[in-house]
């Protein structure tokens, strides 16, 4: 029933509904059970097996680097204030995407967004996204936002980013509660047990 006793279904605005619907479907499929111990262990094993190439979840090492760059643009690091890198946003997303129960369509979704952004960067700036200046990256991402598929991709990416920022560290983001400390958030208790996959994902994230 919730402290919010009235729990509503997704908002009724068609535009919002589409975005939320997509995200809900994505989240429910990507991570249904992604938090189970066995799944995370399997994911961790998967990560280990590909750590030498950096490729995983159907994305090349270069694509993971590009994704990390996108996340860093969306939530940049500042002195003393965490950004995507400090909250381990890429490792968090990699953990979700390498979960054995994550549908292939979700990996395709993640890859398609990157491909669309790469094409857009190439067309506009004749360069890879990762080589663009900060302002050029902003232009490219705003252009991506104007396409329906790009908007959905960015909406989901932002939500995953904020999960990494403010979710329990046991899921692989927000290491040592760095996001909570920044925003003065008191976590509830009891906290969930530490899951093995979380520490694996942190190691991997530093390599991309």
């Amino acid at each position: 029933m919730g402290e919010e006793a009235l729990q509503k279904p997704p908002a009724q605005s068609p535009e919002r509904l589409d975005r939320r619907r997509f995200l809900t479907q994505l989240l429910s499929t990507v991570a249904a059970g992604a938090t189970s111990r066995s799944a995370l262990c399997a994911a961790a094993a998967a990560l280990e097996s590909c750590a030498h190439t950096g490729a995983s979840a159907g994305l090349s090492a270069g694509q993971w680097q590009m994704l990390a760059a996108v996340q860093a643009h969306l939530l940049p690091s500042e002195p003393g204030i965490p950004g995507a890198r400090e909250v381990n946003a890429t490792g968090y997303l990699r953990l979700l995407m390498t979960d054995p129960r994550t549908g292939e369509e979700q990996r395709v979704w993640l890859r398609d967004g990157l491909v669309e952004l790469a094409e857009l960067s190439s067309e506009r700036f004749a360069s890879e996204f990762i080589s663009l200046t900060k302002n050029e990256r902003e232009v490219a991402l705003r252009a991506l936002e104007r396409s329906p598929s790009g908007e959905r991709w960015l909406a989901a990416l932002l939500d995953f980013l904020l999960e990494a920022l403010l979710g329990d560290p046991s899921h692989g983001g927000n290491p040592d509660g760095i996001g909570w400390r920044w925003l003065g958030i008191t976590p509830g208790f009891p906290r969930p047990p530490i899951r093995r996959g979380a520490s694996w994902s942190r190691e991997i994230s530093t390599s991309v």
Binding site: E3, P76, I81, R142, E145, D159, L162, E163, L165
Partner: peptide, 25 residues
């Protein structure tokens, strides 16, 4: 309700598109 992720995701919304980067922070 103390649901920080849910509250944070709403801060990405604006009439002019997504809020991200330093303005989001």
């Amino acid at each position: 309700p103390p649901a920080p992720i849910s509250r944070a995701t709403r801060q990405t919304q604006s009439r002019d598109g997504f809020v991200w980067g330093l303005p989001l922070k």
